[in-house]
Design a protein around this nucleic acid. Structure first.
Length: 398
DNA sequence: AAGATAGCCAACCGCTGTCGC
DNA sequence: AGCGACAGCGGTTGGCTATCT
């Protein structure tokens, strides 16, 4: 570890005085900084090179934009943080004239607080209520697992083709495409297991899924966050069934046939949600996934891994959204998010986190808006949401 | 008016990655 | 391959200021 460099030569620490600033500015503007470790000597400063570098980058650089952050900048920071996490330097690189330190300070001192006030967890960008739901679902899933372990109805047989069946035929899971590196010997017929299968199927990325349950809950919170709908997970305490709820009186409401029976194969809850765009009528949706339904028999469930094919893309919940694999993330950011490019800061002001938005989404991913909207903005908004969903699901982009 | 508290922000610290020798 | 120097990054700290009691 060693002592900090400033101790080596009785170097100054703390705030910079104007004379020091002037020396540093004069030196760097004349000669450039070159090797920072040599700057203090050349500029006659009693500071370490690291300190000089920091002072220059964060305060003295001529291209810095001083002053308070605009609302547009704050919104952009929130968007970028939801995609990149605490990658302050990467966020700063997309806000010309702003430093990572400045953005970090703003985030910790102001934005975090604002998000919490709006009921949004600043770390995950999920609604706090959704997080509570997740915890409930997780707790109940664990209980169900315990129950399942002791149930004769759910006596599991596993064959060499990863085909798992229950002896009672009440639950049948076809797992032919189950990833070979996935442990199946203890695959529980639980809600969690269902969620894993469900989410893996509906991710269009071929990336491996380490936290499928998180992905579903992330997706749901994403839906809730971005579309303003109240999609959430809950548990029917009478039946121990998992409920996917979508309830929104304002703009994004789905109604599906919720009468799931043993004879009624539901291909996918979200596909079902997405398939019915004619029902934006303010009613609520509740999809109940019954443990004894033949839900898992559907061919719509195949694993979104290496054998992922085009047919699965067709059940993409955002059919009109380009496949993220077709778009480079960095290109997207630069063409759509950078100020002065296709999407201006003003456009970005469409505040994801505001209580109301003028944009309405149909369940097929197209936009309905009260006012006319330019195609580029429509596309960008869809992209934003799509990428945010992916980012939420996979943690970060590589 | 004075002390306590909270918020903000510049700067520091420690770690990691890269590069050259 | 190993080492040291350096740059860069993110987390944390400390001091200043504003507000509250």
């Amino acid at each position: 570890m060693g002592r900090p460099c400033c101790y080596k030569k009785k170097l100054r620490k703390g705030l910079w005085c104007p004379e020091e600033d002037e020396k540093l500015i004069n030196h760097v503007t004349k000669y450039g900084h070159g090797c920072w470790s040599s700057v203090p000597k050349l500029a006659a400063l009693q500071r370490c090179g690291k300190s000089c570098r920091l002072r220059w980058i964060n305060y003295l650089r001529p291209d810095l934009k001083r002053g308070t952050f605009s609302q547009q900048e704050e919104n952009l920071i929130i968007q970028l943080h939801s995609l990149l996490g605490n990658k302050w330097s990467q966020i700063a690189s997309r806000l010309p004239g702003r430093t990572d330190n400045e953005i970090k300070n703003l985030w910790n001192s102001s934005i975090k607080k604002k998000l919490r006030q709006k009921g949004i967890d600043p770390n995950t960008h999920k609604l706090l209520s959704v997080i509570e739901n997740e915890e409930k679902v997780s707790a109940i899933s664990m209980n169900i697992e315990k129950v399942s372990e002791g149930s004769s109805e759910l006596n599991i047989i596993e064959d060499s083709n990863y085909r798992i069946k229950s002896k009672s035929s009440l639950v049948t899971m076809t797992m032919d495409n189950y990833p070979s590196n996935t442990t199946t010997s203890a695959a529980p017929l639980t809600h969690k297991f269902f969620l894993e299968r469900f989410v893996t199927t509906h991710e269009t990325s071929t990336a491996s899924c380490n936290k499928p349950l998180d992905q579903l809950t992330s997706y749901l919170s994403f839906e809730k966050l971005n579309y303003g709908s109240n999609i959430g997970l809950s548990i029917n305490s009478n039946t121990n069934n998992l409920l996917l709820n979508s309830k929104n009186s304002e703009m994004f409401t789905h109604q599906v046939n919720s009468s799931i029976t043993n004879d009624n194969i539901l291909t996918s809850p979200i596909a079902a949600i997405a398939s019915n765009d004619s029902m934006r009528n303010g009613s609520s949706t509740s999809i109940e996934l019954q443990r004894n339904s033949s839900f898992f028999d559907s061919n719509a469930f195949s694993w979104g891994t290496a054998d992922y094919d085009k047919s699965e893309k067709e059940v993409n919940i955002h059919p009109s959204v380009p496949d993220p694999d077709d778009i480079k993330w960095s290109e997207y950011l630069h063409t759509q998010l950078l100020p002065g490019n296709a999407i201006t800061n003003d456009q970005i002001t469409q505040d994801l986190y505001s209580a109301k938005s003028s944009i309405q989404f149909t369940t097929q991913g197209s936009l309905l808006q009260n006012q006319q909207q330019q195609p580029s903005l429509q596309t960008a908004n869809i992209y934003n949401k799509h990428y945010q969903r992916i980012s939420d699901s996979f943690g970060q982009f590589s």
